[in-house]
């Protein structure tokens, strides 16, 4: 077994374990942390596939940004999970059985010879001057420019939907209006009162 194979099985095993933990562990914060572990192992598997750029992006974007945000949300929401988990185990035996059967069937079907070494030969390793990032960028912005733009459109819809669904002015909340704050005049804040001078009593 070569070192690459060893690395693959090592990271793949960690990834499968972490993914299983994500859906079975009770504590949502721990589940999120296991998801981070799954992402990092996934990135390592991609490294063995020579997809360096994707591996780094996976760690930067998913682990660095998305999961951190997700952890914040989980911590801030303080979801009562014991209530959510009620009845979770009720369907576990039958559901687990069905899932197991399906996995076995899928393994049997997919281990047919369509995906073996003859039909799926190992791709030629690239030379030293090959830039994964450059190739990806070239493909994305030329050949795949149309799907790429539609994906951007989907993100735009996500932004609009998120704002439209959450933004609303509630009259009881207090908020600052920077425009009014900037436009304020001296006269709005200070009132000069003209009074006749008076003499102190003790000086009289």
């Amino acid at each position: 077994m070569s070192f690459t194979q060893l690395a693959f099985y090592f990271f793949a095993a960690i990834m499968v374990f972490a993914a299983a933990m994500v859906i079975t562990i009770r504590n949502p914060v721990k589940a999120a942390l296991f998801l981070v572990l799954a992402f990092v192992s996934g990135a390592c598997v991609w490294m063995t596939l020579e997809a360096e750029f994707l591996a780094i992006v996976l760690v930067l974007v998913y682990v660095g940004a998305v999961m951190v945000l997700f952890l914040f949300v989980v911590m801030m929401l303080d979801v009562n999970l014991t209530r959510l988990r009620e009845g979770f185990g009720e369907y576990l035996p039958i559901g687990g059985l069905v899932a197991l059967l399906m996995v076995v069937e899928m393994v049997i079907v997919l281990s047919a010879d369509s995906f073996d070494q003859q039909n799926m030969p190992r791709p030629e390793p690239h030379g030293e001057d090959y830039s994964n990032t450059k190739e990806l960028g070239r493909l994305l912005y030329t050949f795949y420019v149309y799907p790429f733009e539609i994906a951007a459109l989907i993100l735009l819809v996500a932004i609009i939907a998120a704002i439209a669904l959450t933004l609303r002015k509630r009259p009881e909340t207090k908020y600052q209006n920077p425009a009014e704050q900037v436009a304020v005049q001296r006269e709005d804040r200070i009132r000069l009162v003209k009074m006749a001078a008076e003499r102190r009593k003790d000086e009289q």
């Binding site: 799907p147 539609i150 994906a151 459109l153 989907i154 819809v157 996500a158 609009i160 939907a161 439209a164 669904l165």
Partner: peptide, 13 residues
């Protein structure tokens, strides 16, 4: 697939 997702996301919201 992307067209389908664009449609679905708009409909969900």
């Amino acid at each position: 697939y992307l067209g389908l997702e664009l449609l679905s996301l708009s409909l969900y919201s």
